[in-house]
Amino acid sequence: MNTSPWPTIAALHAWLTEQSPLPPEQQRLLRVLKLSEEVGEVAEAVIGATGQNPRKGHSHTWQDVESELCDVIITAMVALTTLTQDPAGTFESHLAGVARRSLGNDRATSGG
């Protein structure tokens, strides 16, 4: 089943907006800054999964890293929704450009 995540992201965005007492400009800035927090949690999970903190040892698993990466993606999608009326279109267009630059025209459009 291949369903788009964008309706769920739109619902999360609406919920966050409804719950926030801040003006839209501050909400926009804080949603972008929230990405830094989430990326830090990925780093913490990687350090914990590899046991690189002698005081904490192996405090995380690679599944924790996966979960934190998903949080980064969700947070970025919500932030993008805050910035544009068409987050899905903006993302698809940007992804297509990255694929063209990185994979070339044939591989970018064929999926392989």
Rank of each mutant, 00 (worst) to 15 (best):
S36L: 12
I9K: 00
R101C: 11
L103Y: 12
V72S: 01
E44G: 09
S110Y: 02
R31K: 12
G97C: 10
H58E: 11
L29C: 05
V78E: 00
E92L: 14
M1N: 08
T8K: 14
A88V: 03
M77R: 11
M77S: 11
R101Y: 09
A88R: 15
T109S: 15
L95G: 03
E41V: 07
L16T: 10
T82L: 01
P23L: 03
E18M: 03
T61W: 07
W15S: 05
E66S: 12
S102W: 08
M77H: 05
T82W: 01
D64T: 05
A45H: 00
I47W: 08
Q52F: 10
Q85N: 14
R55F: 06
S36N: 14
A76F: 06
H58G: 02
T3F: 07
A10I: 00
Q63P: 00
A10M: 02
T8H: 12
S59F: 02
I73Q: 09
V42M: 01
A96E: 13
D86E: 13
D64L: 04
Q85Y: 08
E41S: 06
G48W: 06
I74W: 04
G40A: 12
I47M: 13
A108I: 03
P5E: 02
A49L: 08
V46R: 01
E18K: 03
E37L: 14
R55S: 05
P23C: 02
T75H: 04
T50C: 14
E68D: 03
D64I: 06
P23K: 03
E18V: 01
E41M: 10
W15E: 08
E25M: 07
A49K: 07
A49V: 12
I47K: 14
M1Y: 07
T75V: 13
E38G: 05
A108S: 15
G48H: 04
H94W: 15
P5R: 04
L12Q: 09
S59E: 04
A10P: 00
A88C: 08
